[in-house]
């Protein structure tokens, strides 16, 4: 068993199979709930909840936070937060079955882990900012938007991948 998980560690599903199942899941999600998947929404809810807990008056004064605060319901009581909890569990099960669980910093052998972590932090800050401006990330805006032919979804998808290819040259040392 040990040997099997050792050799299977970097064997992933066929991408078309994974994509097909993901597409079926999106159909199912729209069919049941009338809306798509999401990911960055849960992080926004977490930030709103933390700021609200630390300083309620500040959160209530801010035009952005106050949209997501309600008196009778926690901002963590939200569809996307529950969905994200499910993502954590599902990914943990999949990783566990293939022996991929363990604390590590994954990076190219050409760079140090410190450099990797610094770029991960910076990339996260940019992605968090961009996802708020575009009202959704790759899952919520691009993927779920494209599934119902949303114009905004297609524009966001083109902007994310287009810019990614444009700037890839400047980050090449981190990856290749």
């Amino acid at each position: 068993m040990k040997i099997k998980t050792q050799t299977n560690r970097h064997i992933y599903w066929n991408p078309y199979f994974g994509g097909f199942l993901l597409g079926i899941l999106i159909i199912f999600t729209f069919y049941i709930t009338g809306r798509g998947l999401g990911a960055s929404g849960a992080m926004k809810s977490s930030v709103v909840t933390i700021v609200d807990a630390v300083t309620h008056s500040h959160a209530a004064d801010n035009a952005y936070y106050k949209q997501f605060i309600s008196e009778d319901k926690s901002s963590m009581n939200n569809w996307l937060v529950f969905e994200t909890l499910g993502v954590l569990i599902g990914a943990f099960i999949s990783g566990g079955l293939s022996g991929r669980i363990g604390w590590r910093v994954q990076h190219s052998p050409k760079i140090t882990s410190k450099r990797r972590l610094a770029f991960a932090l910076g990339g996260g800050v940019l992605f968090g900012l961009g996802a708020q401006i575009a009202r959704g990330c790759t899952s919520g805006a691009a993927l779920s938007g494209m599934a119902v032919l949303s114009t905004g979804g297609f524009i966001t998808m083109l902007a994310i991948f287009g810019t990614g290819f444009l700037v890839a040259y400047f980050f090449r040392k981190n990856w290749i």
Partner: peptide
């Protein structure tokens, strides 16, 4: 927003 996410994607290697 998409352009900023694109830079974040290449720099950080993940999306949310």
């Amino acid at each position: 927003g998409g352009a900023i996410m694109g830079v974040g994607f290449v720099a950080g290697g993940f999306c949310p």
